[in-house]
Amino acid sequence: MRLLKQFGAVAAVALAGSLAVGAVRGNPFLTLGLGLATAVLALLTYAWVVRRTERRAPVEVAGKGAGAAVGRGLLIGVGMFAAVIANIALLGGYRIDGMGSAAGALALLGFMAAAAVTEELIFRGILFRIVEERIGTWGSLVLTGLLFGLAHLFNAHATLWGAIAIAVEAGGMLAAAYAATRTLWLPIGLHFGWNFAQAGVFGTTASGRTGPEGLLDGVLSGPTLLSGGEFGPEASLYAVLAGVVLTIVFMWLARRRGHLVPRRRRTARTDPTATLAQ
């Protein structure tokens, strides 16, 4: 029940924010403001519902060290995408046709902030964390990663390969980032940095979604496995490889720090006749 209550509370904020942002998408300043407001409200709602349903302090979103952790995640996410797009460009799959739109990048800043925060709260803060208690870190990583990939099948230009790529490179990597740090700030920063670099900086399609122009007018071409096709660079083998590498690194850190949770074993049922015999 706590999973359902937490999911329902954060999902309601995410839906309301998405509708509000969609209604003013033509205005970059309102989109920025509403996106940031959605992110803040979702964090406050998560902290409140965790306190109510689990009777504990939500340490995974504690304010201490949050800025530094988000900053580290941001650098990793931007650096990761820059490496992916550079490799695609070297083989002729990406080119820049000129400058894009600063106003569009501003709107994407708010939109991507809301998406990164709400998705991390739902998929890592709620689903991964609670499921992990039952089936362990590795099992939860696989299961919630698949769910994260399947959720992207509803996006425009979605394909089964694109969903699988998202599940591997993002679903697994972001869950591993949480397991390694036991806070949501690093995965939030990583998620935002990756998404904003895609659409807001390099001007490519993010998870099949088209929206405002980014800072650059980027064009993808060539085989889908190289460039990602209409779904965007996230469906590129380069992105999958980068995600797998970071997943391995984060899970190594989680193991080294003693953060891995084993699968819960079923307790054997007590034999009442044995008890009476004693």
Rank of each mutant, 00 (worst) to 15 (best):
G136I: 09
T224F: 02
K5I: 14
A82M: 11
P272L: 13
A239W: 00
A170K: 02
L147Y: 05
A89P: 00
A62K: 09
T137F: 06
A277K: 11
Y46V: 15
A68P: 02
Q198F: 00
G232D: 04
G110Q: 02
W252E: 15
T45K: 08
S221C: 07
G136C: 03
G139H: 04
F123V: 09
E213Q: 15
V70P: 00
V49R: 03
R25I: 13
A242H: 02
T118A: 03
I126P: 02
F231V: 15
V50R: 07
I248S: 13
E54M: 12
H152K: 05
E132K: 10
V245P: 02
L43K: 11
A235V: 08
W252N: 14
T270R: 15
L215G: 10
L237D: 09
F123E: 06
F148I: 07
A167S: 15
W48V: 14
G98A: 07
L34W: 03
L190A: 10
E132F: 02
L91S: 10
A82G: 05
A105P: 02
S101P: 03
V219C: 05
A12Y: 07
T270I: 12
V50L: 12
Y238N: 12
G193Y: 03
L15E: 10
A42E: 06
S227L: 01
L190K: 01
L127Y: 06
V168G: 11
V61S: 11
R129T: 13
N195L: 05
L260T: 14
Q198G: 09
L41P: 01
P212F: 08
T270C: 08
F111K: 06
A114C: 08
L43F: 06
V70G: 04
K5R: 15
Y238K: 06
M80C: 15
G26F: 00
K5T: 13
N195V: 03
L186K: 01
I76P: 00
E120G: 09
L146F: 11
V21S: 10
F196M: 07
A23C: 09
L121Y: 04
R25L: 14
D271T: 06
G149D: 01
